[in-house]
């Protein structure tokens, strides 16, 4: 429990939130570069399936990762265009394609808990922890692991 608290201390703070399917996620707001509407996408043939394509972010070429596929969730309904949540990682900016963008929320470490052990393997590696909100749960996404496609492959 003490380790969980220590983790919570690290993970507490402001979170930029978003929805993927019915899941409510948060990324440390300091790691978010910007949020964009649906962008023109150039697909990359033969690329790993989770990679939706490349977008031109003011001259910078950014890889877009489809969060639904990354988390092993069903495809987005036709006509629903995803939002780009551009996160800064050690290897540069990467865009996470999410369904909807939520608010920036202040999180209290008291409501933090580690993810359940029986979490879906596809998501387990990517979710750092859970904040218990009043009406729902906020899943803390580990963006570094999310953009590292080697993570979760073995699972």
């Amino acid at each position: 429990m003490t380790t969980a608290k220590a983790e919570a201390a690290q993970t507490s703070g402001q979170f930029s939130t978003f929805f993927v399917a019915d899941l409510f996620f948060g990324v440390d707001v300091l790691h978010v570069q910007e949020v964009l509407r649906s962008q023109q996408m150039t697909s990359v043939p033969q690329a790993p399936g989770v990679i939706e394509g490349l977008i031109n972010l003011r001259g910078q070429i950014v890889t877009a990762i489809d969060m639904r596929r990354r988390l092993g969730l069903p495809q987005r309904a036709g006509g629903q265009s995803p939002m780009n949540m551009v996160v800064r990682t050690v290897d540069g900016a990467v865009s996470l394609l999410v369904d909807e963008i939520g608010d920036v929320l202040d999180m209290d470490s008291a409501t933090y808990e580690r993810p359940p052990q029986n979490l879906d393997p596809a998501a387990k590696e990517l979710i750092r922890g859970v904040y218990k909100l009043k009406d729902k749960l906020l899943l803390v996404l580990d963006e570094e692991r999310t953009v590292d496609l080697a993570v979760g492959k073995a699972a």
């Binding site: 023109q40 150039t42 043939p45 690329a47 031109n56 890889t63 990467v94 953009v147 496609l149």
Partner: peptide, 22 residues
């Protein structure tokens, strides 16, 4: 290209075309 695509030997990189697309 981003690290996620480094493994693909098919591409040498990417560029941005006149219409702003990659």
């Amino acid at each position: 290209l981003g690290k996620q695509l480094k493994g693909l030997t098919l591409y040498a990189g990417a560029t941005i075309m006149g219409d702003g697309r990659v």
